[in-house]
Amino acid sequence: MNPIAGVGRLGAWAIGSVRALGRFTLFARTLLGAGASPPLRLRRLVAEVYDAGVLSLLIVCVSGFAVGMVLGLQGHNTLVRFGAEENLGAVVGLSLIRELGPVLTSLLVAGRAGSAMAAEIAAMVVTEQLDGLRMMSVDPLDFVVAPKALGMILAMPLLSTLFVVFGILGGWAVGVIVLGGDAGAYLSTLEQATEFSEDVLGGLIKAAVFGVLVGFIATYQGFTARATTAGVSAAATSTVVIASVATLIFDYFITALWGY
């Protein structure tokens, strides 16, 4: 194989990625402009928060509970070695609030509501619904896309909170009911170890940032989808892949930069 061709392909890939990132940034800027300018379309926004939230409600609650149970079990097994099993509440709660709640919620929501959002917008491209709006001099970014992205941004912290609550319940179910730990200690260690501004607020900010990521990536993939059936499914899949990877990468940087 010609080594120069390999370098050329690498270069083409790099240029392509930078271009895509540039297009995404332009899209995000236009979307922000469209969303921020009046009218504010409150009713559309509420509908979108509801859609994004309700779609993911069940999986977020169930997954939260399951993750909490695993944390309870693993945490108990580890803490027992140090004779510190009464601290289970703090271990389960803090890992959920600071890290697992926002991250896992974002991954779940990207797979459920994010892909649905991308596919819905892409289907509107295919069926010319967005062109129909343009013909009525209604900006599709303003009418359709911005409320969806904003709905996702608002839904994510709410869902993440639910995840955390159900996770704490799951940990309690295992630590207290199954393994016979002390219920009072579970809650009091959790309460003592948790700092509102550090942990809770940090977790919420993380979730909001992930909401921005998932919301913008999903709407971008949908809005720029090719006008074919394959384009719709490609928009959904790439949303899940890109949003999940972006969530994990951003999680590291948020944690490293702000210590959340």
Binding site: T127, E128, Q129, D131, G132, L133, R134, M135, M136, S137
Partner: peptide, 17 residues
Amino acid sequence: AWRHHVGMLFQFGALLD
């Protein structure tokens, strides 16, 4: 601005779902 003067019926309707 031009589209303000124009009404269009799309071949497949293009109504908002």
